[in-house]
Simulated scan of single mutants.
Amino acid sequence: MNLKLVKGIAFVLLWYTCIIWAVFFIYCPLIFLLFVNRRWYRKCTDIILSCWELYPASLLEILMGCRVCISGDDINPEDGAILIMNHRNRLDWFFLWAALLHASKPPAHRCKFVLKSDVRIIPGIGWGLQMAGYLFIHRNWEKDRILLKRSLDYFKAIKTKYQILIFPEGTNISENTKAKSHSFADKNGLQRYEHVLHPRTTGFTFLAEYMKSNSQLDAVYDITVGYPKTLPSSETDLLLGNIPEEVHFHIKRFPAKELPSEEAPIKKWCEERWEAKEDALTKFYKPQTDRKFSQDYKCDRPWNAMYFALVAWTVFTMYTIYLTFTSSIALYWILFSTASFIIVSYFSIGIQQFEIDLYNKFDKEDEITQNMNTSIPATNGRNKKAN
Rank of each mutant, 00 (worst) to 15 (best):
D300N: 08
F316H: 03
I243G: 01
E246Q: 15
A378K: 14
Q130H: 10
I62T: 01
K187H: 13
S117Y: 10
G72I: 02
K159I: 12
Q216R: 04
Y134L: 06
F293M: 00
N188K: 11
Y297K: 06
E365P: 03
E367P: 10
P123S: 05
A108M: 13
Y332L: 14
A132L: 07
G170A: 06
W269F: 14
R88C: 05
A185C: 09
E355K: 08
S71C: 05
F94M: 14
P232C: 10
N89E: 13
I19T: 07
R192T: 05
L129E: 07
R39Q: 10
G80C: 12
F204I: 04
T201M: 02
S328R: 13
W127V: 00
G241P: 05
E355P: 01
D279V: 13
W52I: 00
P168A: 13
Y27C: 02
D73C: 01
P106W: 06
T202P: 03
W274V: 02
I75A: 00
Q353S: 12
M131Y: 11
K229T: 14
H248A: 11
H198I: 12
S215T: 10
Y193P: 01
S215A: 14
T45V: 15
A57P: 00
I26C: 14
Y162L: 08
N37K: 05
I70A: 00
R200M: 04
Y359W: 15
A276T: 13
W52G: 01
Q130C: 06
S345Q: 02
L310S: 07
L96A: 08
W93C: 06
F167L: 07
N214T: 10
V225Y: 03
L197F: 08
C28L: 12
Y154G: 00
G65S: 07
C111M: 15
I75P: 00
T45M: 14
W40V: 13
L310M: 06
E53K: 00
F35I: 04
N2P: 07
Q288P: 07
